[in-house]
Design a protein around this nucleic acid. Structure first.
Lengths: 201, 201
DNA sequence: AATGCTATTGAGTGTGCGACCAACAAGCAA
DNA sequence: TTGCTTGTTGGTCGCACACTCAATAGCATT
């Protein structure tokens, strides 16, 4: 098998393991078994496992970002994009991503390579969201002083809610808590309540 | 040495290690070496290391809570308590605590005993903060519909900012982001801006 | 001083991990 | 066909981990 394809296959497998079971489950033996090859082969492509972990995380996070906030927003208005983003990030299917972020943010305490990747993905997510907000401001849909700050604020609140993914059952939280990202976005962007998501009682 | 004292000493040591280096650094060997005893002795008091980890986390978190929001607020007004709480939690000295929460929240994915402890501490922190808010409402200092929801919201934002402790340097974040907990508290409690912390430009 | 309890040791077991390397084999070039 | 590059194997080393348990030493009480 060609080196590039093999390498991509390894990263993809590692990313899947990371999403399902956590970054610390990315081990030479585990990934090798998953692919039906010997552990030594993984070592051959990634002499240091830490680099594979970083790569797997980066791959998963980037893919999720492209899914949540596609780079080309063909046809969709910024309001629609943002509403979709907020709906997705509060859904249960997003829990795995929340776990991945939590995992990566903690693990990057010990793994410099991962820390760099996390910083890069943080920036990427912020910039992508910021672009939507900026576009919305230009089109007159949003009103905000600083799209970057608003983007950061939304992401901080999302992170805060994501922190709870392993402990509490997020679904019995009061609506005022669950809706924090939506409420913040609507307030900061000068949108009437209910624009980005239907108001629950 | 008496069993109770020894046990307390072990937990205290483990808590210190957890705060300084992380919960995964709590190993039989590490704690034993720290105390100048043999690993077997730690096993004797904690047959399962997971229980020591949970205990150490609980001990550290509870101590920090007592420091941040003392149970008896002798003399201090709710506004003063809250202002002090928000000042402390945004200081650099709080970084170790942020790391501990991040650590525990991630690790509780794999450790049931730790998960229970985290849930308990989450509740304890929320209730302690809620009590301050409720007191403030009764005294007419605060105005909020639901103190519990406001307490949860403040904690979510604090968690969100704490997520960044290992990646970005929190100090180059814009004031509008750094001040999110203060802004949220002032808004939700009907306080004029600047009441809980001086406004930076 | 003898006895009994128990905190503590020392040695050992088994597991999983990353990393290393010589040997093999399959594909491509000469 | 021959030869060489290289993807791949199989085996191995050393390390750190949790956990077990019989033996020991020190402190009670009697």
């Amino acid at each position: 098998m060609s080196p590039a394809a093999r390498r991509a296959e390894i990263v993809a497998t590692a990313a899947a393991v990371a999403l399902a079971e956590g970054l610390e489950c990315i081990t030479l033996r585990r990934i090798a078994e998953e692919l039906g090859v010997r552990p030594g082969l993984i070592s051959h492509y990634f002499p240091a496992v830490e680099d594979l972990v970083a790569e797997a995380y980066g791959s998963a996070a980037a893919a999720e970002l492209d899914d949540l906030l596609p780079a080309d927003r063909a046809g969709a208005t910024p309001t629609e994009c943002l509403a979709r983003f907020l709906a997705r990030t509060s859904g249960e299917e997003y829990d795995d991503i929340s776990r991945l972020w939590l995992n990566a943010r903690h693990l990057s305490r010990y793994r410099p390579a991962l820390r760099d990747r996390v910083a890069a993905q943080e920036a990427a997510w912020r910039e992508r969201l910021e672009a939507v907000l900026r576009d919305g401001v230009e089109r007159g849909e949003f009103r905000t002083g600083d799209p970057m700050v608003t983007a950061m604020q939304i992401l901080v609140v999302l992170d805060g809610l994501g922190m709870l993914v392993n402990s509490a059952d997020t679904h019995d939280d009061p609506p005022a808590v669950r809706r924090m990202p939506v409420t913040l976005a609507e307030r900061e962007l000068g949108l009437p309540p209910g624009t980005l998501a239907p108001v629950e009682d």
